[in-house]
Amino acid sequence: MSGEPFLIGDSMTGGYGKSGPDILHDCTIAVERGEIAVIVGPNGAGKSTAMKAVFGMLNLRQGAVRLDGQDITELSPQARVRKGMGFVPQTSNIFTSMTVEENLEMGAFIREDDYRETMEQVFELFPILREKRAQAAGELSGGQRQQVAVGRALMTQPKVLMLDEPTAGVSPIVMDELFDRIIEVARTGICILMVEQNARQALEIADKGYVLVQGANAHTGTGKDLLADPDVRRSFLGG
């Protein structure tokens, strides 16, 4: 469709399993090329569920997901990866017994071309990974593990990078560094869709923000607009 966002989860209603209750209620999430879109909201608001719905990990009873104008609602997550979607879950997102370099190589599993240039780009984005390329990923700090997870997703050369709570459990300094790298990735033209518990910091870097409450859109706007919205500040940002 002309004029439609590059990626859109449109009016999504659904939940887990065939007969589970609906967690999402007419929820819409969209992101353009080179944009950072952030999903925030209280615990249990359906933030991660909305992202998983976009990635095809739960059943939609209503609504659709479209990527670059193509309806992908019925595609499996694996098929969506081949269409250009990269997903970094919050936990269990690296192979701990493998080296950093082996983790990145695993990210290139769908590639049939020479992926060494992409690996070099990942090392330029995350210099510490080059330094630790021969080390077991399980020995790294929490922030370094997240870099491995994001790097592995980038090895597929995604058009969309989806991050579920990328800064969970890391220090404020590491969080700022990760956000800086995420901005760099977006500048290459990749869509970033991110669920984030550090709402204020995430909205500061967001082109677009979605505040979810009980699986539905409560507020939508630019990151700047949401940060300035008294209702959003009072309800979700601590005043």
Rank of each mutant, 00 (worst) to 15 (best):
T96S: 09
F55E: 12
G69K: 13
G34T: 00
M12L: 07
Y16E: 13
R111T: 02
M85Y: 13
R61D: 10
G56C: 11
L60Y: 01
I8L: 01
Q62H: 08
L60F: 01
Q62M: 14
T13F: 03
L104H: 05
I29L: 02
G20V: 04
G9E: 02
A108P: 10
P42D: 12
I72F: 10
K18P: 00
M12R: 00
L7Y: 02
K52Q: 11
M12F: 01
G107K: 07
A45Y: 12
P42F: 15
T13C: 12
H25E: 13
K47F: 00
E120Q: 15
C27P: 03
T91I: 04
G15M: 07
S76N: 04
Q62P: 10
A53R: 14
M12P: 05
G84Q: 05
G34P: 13
A79E: 15
F87E: 09
F55L: 06
S48R: 06
C27G: 03
G41F: 09
Y115R: 09
E117I: 04
V122C: 03
E102S: 10
E117S: 04
L67Q: 08
M98E: 14
I29C: 05
G107S: 02
D26F: 01
G107N: 07
V81Q: 10
S19A: 14
S11H: 13
N93C: 04
E101Y: 06
D68R: 04
E35A: 10
G17C: 04
S76Q: 13
I36D: 03
R111H: 05
T96F: 09
E120D: 15
H25M: 06
R61I: 05
H25F: 11
M51A: 11
G15T: 07
D26I: 05
T96H: 15
S19C: 00
V40S: 13
G20E: 11
F55K: 02
M57Q: 15
D71R: 09
M119P: 10
K18E: 12
R116K: 15
P21F: 09
Q121W: 11
S76I: 03
F6Q: 08
D71V: 00
Q121S: 08
R111E: 10
D71A: 03
A108W: 01
Q90T: 05
R111Y: 01
R80L: 05
M12E: 00
I72V: 14
E105K: 14
G86K: 08
V81D: 07
V81T: 11
T13S: 08
N103W: 12
L58P: 01
P89I: 05
N93Q: 02
V88R: 08
V54Q: 01
A79L: 11
F87D: 01
R66A: 08
S19N: 14
V65F: 00
G9K: 10
E101V: 02
N43K: 12
S76M: 11
E35M: 07
K47A: 04
G20L: 05
Y115P: 12
D113Q: 00
V38F: 08
A108E: 01
G17V: 10
M51P: 03
F109H: 15
G34S: 07
K47L: 02
V54I: 15
T49P: 06
L58R: 11
M85S: 09
N103L: 02
R111K: 12
